[in-house]
Design a protein around this nucleic acid. Structure first.
Length: 271
DNA sequence: AACGCGCCCTGTCCGC
DNA sequence: TGCGGACAGGGCGCGT
């Protein structure tokens, strides 16, 4: 569900609300959501810890507990919400962290593709180092993108979604970025020119930045940490617009399937 | 090593 | 109205 802009929006909300809060009690309603240890050990380890900061790495939410981390990946339908203890819950509640001041942090997930897990400082460094670079960082240069594509014949849309190279781009923003770059999503990665690599870099950064401004894309399930939907869906140019006119040339938007996922593009604008 | 595929799970929507 | 199939923002593990 959530790609970089959605996770970033959630993280900004949590970073405002949570630092300084202490975890008083932990309830694991859906044990399969906890990775790496049994739910009792997980709960015991978190109890009493203070939340120092909340940040993002790739599509993961990173909660610094001071000498250890709690990681959250939202999968397709995960939500991380700050709520009042007295507020109503849903059948999809997975994990509840009771905090001070009558508040709690709730993890909800209809499909349960999401995960919560703990990491030591050392595990964090190793895990984090194996991920690709952040697309909004200075490291993400046209040259970086061009050089890494040389060794891969994978179609460029699928290539963009591989989190070992560049993180944070998922199914919506891969289509949107390639539309902005005017590059056909079926092109093998190693067929790109340097100019096209630059256009793709620019397209990825532009669409991610704009989507963050609009607090992400809500197709159905996505909500920020306050339960509010994102507004970027109105700004999508090709995603979920099969048959509708291209916003640039008017030709109908095409839908194809790549690596089992829908891709949307304009066959006239994207070469 | 790189790559394609099936699978995890629940809900919604569409065509018949 | 009911039913089967396709599909949904992600990511892992398998076999080749």
């Amino acid at each position: 569900m959530p790609e970089l802009p959605e996770v970033e929006t959630i993280v900004r909300g949590l970073a405002d609300a949570l630092p300084g809060a202490r975890i008083r009690r932990v309830e694991v309603a859906r044990p399969d959501l906890v990775d790496g240890e049994d739910p009792e050990a997980f709960a015991k380890a978190l109890k009493g810890k203070e939340i120092h900061s909340v940040t993002r790495r790739a599509k993961n939410i990173v909660i610094d507990l001071g000498g250890g981390y709690l990681l959250v990946n939202l999968g397709m339908t995960g939500r991380l919400l700050v709520a009042a203890k007295k507020d109503e819950t849903t059948p999809y509640l997975g994990v509840r962290l009771e905090l001070d001041g009558g508040r709690e942090l709730r993890y909800h997930d209809v499909r349960r593709f999401g995960r919560l897990w703990r990491m030591t400082e050392e595990e964090w460094r190793e895990w984090e180092g194996a991920l690709g670079i952040e697309p909004l960082s200075r490291e993400f240069t046209p040259r970086y993108l061009f050089d890494l594509t040389r060794r891969s014949r994978v179609e460029v849309k699928t290539w963009l979604m591989d989190q070992r190279r560049v993180v944070g781009v998922g199914n919506i923003y891969a289509s949107e970025a390639l539309f902005r770059a005017k590059v056909d999503p079926r092109r093998p990665a190693n067929s790109l020119t340097e100019k096209e690599a630059k256009r793709i870099r620019d397209g990825v950064q532009a669409v991610l930045r704009e989507s963050i401004e609009f607090r992400g894309t809500t197709l159905l399930d996505y909500r920020d940490s306050s339960g509010e939907p994102g507004e970027f869906v109105k700004r999508l140019r090709v995603y979920d617009r099969e048959g509708e006119p291209c916003v640039v040339c008017g030709a109908p938007v095409t839908r194809i399937v790549q690596a089992g996922r829908s891709t949307f593009f304009c066959g006239k604008c994207q070469k």
